[in-house]
Amino acid sequence: MQEVKEETWELKLYVAGKTVKSVTAIKNLEKYCKEHLQGKYQIEIIDLLEKPQLAEGDQIFAIPTLVRKFPEPMRKIIGDLSNEEKVLVGLNIRSLKTVS
């Protein structure tokens, strides 16, 4: 694991098994991150079928859910992340890009 820098994005993706939606979401997320965050990110994929007790902590009720733990504030995006525009707005990525 590389050292967490200030700009490093901490993302958690909650899925439940290998459903179509889960797989799509994982693919989409990895694509966006590669494109827009260029290595300044960490993705943790949590399968709730294996660890159901983790659902409570981040208040997960819909699957798949992407949680932006860092930077603050916490944001949640639910769905298979198929709309790139919405995901980027939701994660506030574009603004970061303009800043940097």
Binding site: Y14, A16, T19, K21, T24, A25, L48, L49, P52, A55, E56, I60, F61, A62, I63, P64, T65, P73, M74, R75, K76, I77, I78, G79, D80, L81, S82, N83, K86, V87, V89, G90
Partner: peptide
């Protein structure tokens, strides 16, 4: 806090409840 994009389901709720 929540943004919706694309398809999703409430499996998270099911899993928690279960």
């Amino acid at each position: 806090e929540i943004e919706e994009t694309g398809e999703y389901d409430l499996d998270g709720l099911f899993i928690r409840l279960g």
